[in-house]
Nucleic acid binder design. Structure first.
Lengths: 207, 207
DNA sequence: CCGCTCATGTAACTGGTTACATGATTTA
DNA sequence: TAAATCATGTAACCAGTTACATGAGCGG
């Protein structure tokens, strides 16, 4: 049987956490999440719930509110076992922990931009990250109020990420903002000074 | 015309960087990358190169080595424009910077595990992250040798990420190892209380 | 010469996406 | 009561995935 996708497992976890809920309530979690990785689109969630139910990891109960019908899902014991398995088994193929990062991906090619545009990129990225901090704090506060210790801890990871990215951008900025970012003589930059020599050698080698 | 995917843009950047290369050389970059986000599978890359060529962002030139034929791709000036555009325009929908993180996703539901399994999870995650550090340093060293300043900077982001995740796990561990993680009155928890104040102040400021 | 890896693909599948449909409920 | 939004979906598409095919070069 096919391995569950990460989204399927997260949904399974949400059903477990919420106890008894509709597909729509699950969707909202993703729509309101601070991450944009999963959109929580109906086209993703509704069929996914059916898949989970077909595998007996969740079960549904018909209900209604006014004239509107809905299905209330809850996790089965087999579902709980599957959830535990996912929680315990980090994928072992290569580094599962280094995932996509739009800033990092762009940084690789930033020399394709003019000096001004590079700085603009960094400033823009900084702004975006700073914008996220209060949002994350709010969300963390919500978890705290609900007494959700692990949600709080998960949001702490977001904050750590934001801070580390900001300090990385600071570092990058300090290199790029100087007139001769490759030649100053501080500790960090001695390391980088070596780059330039190397790259000049490289260019010469290519000629 | 459809917007380019991130993978397409990264490939475009690689072609730009490498100057003239085969699809296979591009694939290798992904296979050897420290991230597992894109597999660099043939089924992804070869059709992608055709798509980029059809859009005139890259162009190919037939070549051969021995009896084996191949296509050498290089970027066009339209391709360079498109690359600059991607570099400058961070997606604005929600937070593009908070992406998927398998550790964080699991942390949300870690209370589904027994106390021992939670600790085991954290230890396992720590081990995985620590494993990555020397790998990342090596890769950074490679960029350094090649005089690729921006590659070096990008890998610096990986290192920042690894370190921040490790410190987050440390924090989590110190909470979970104690008997009453939610109720202790130490510094960490006071800090969490402060967060809440911060976010409240923020809300007020926004009003 | 045999087997292994390199290099260049093709084919089938699928888990997500966006866009659309539709009736119920709320709000102006 | 008209318009907007909520809630529950369906349909079409597509960018990736894994798996397979195939011939070239190469080490034993």
């Amino acid at each position: 049987m096919r391995e569950l996708s990460d989204l399927e497992c997260v949904v399974l976890g949400l059903v477990w956490r919420k106890g008894s809920c509709t597909a729509y309530a699950i969707r909202k979690e993703f729509v309101q999440s601070s991450s944009s990785y999963w959109s929580g689109s109906a086209g993703a969630i509704y069929p996914l719930m059916e898949r989970l139910e077909k595998r007996r990891l969740i079960e549904s109960q018909a209900g209604s509110q006014g004239k509107r019908n809905h299905l209330l899902y809850s996790i089965t014991s087999e579902g709980e076992r599957e959830l535990s398995r996912w929680l315990s088994d980090l994928p072992s193929n290569k580094s599962c922990v280094i995932t996509f990062n739009p800033l990092r991906s762009r940084m690789f090619f930033l020399d394709a931009l003019s000096r001004e545009d590079r700085i603009a990129f960094l400033r823009n990225a900084q702004a975006k990250l700073k914008q996220e901090v209060p949002r994350a704090l709010d969300k963390q506060g919500d978890y705290l109020e609900r007494g959700d210790f692990f949600g709080n801890l998960a949001m702490e990871s977001v904050l750590h990420t934001l801070r580390s990215q900001l300090s990385w951008l600071d570092e990058a900025m300090s290199h790029l903002e100087g007139d001769r970012p490759l030649e100053s003589g501080q500790a960090d930059c001695r390391r980088i000074a070596r780059f330039k020599d190397d790259s000049e050698r490289n260019e010469r080698r290519q000629d």
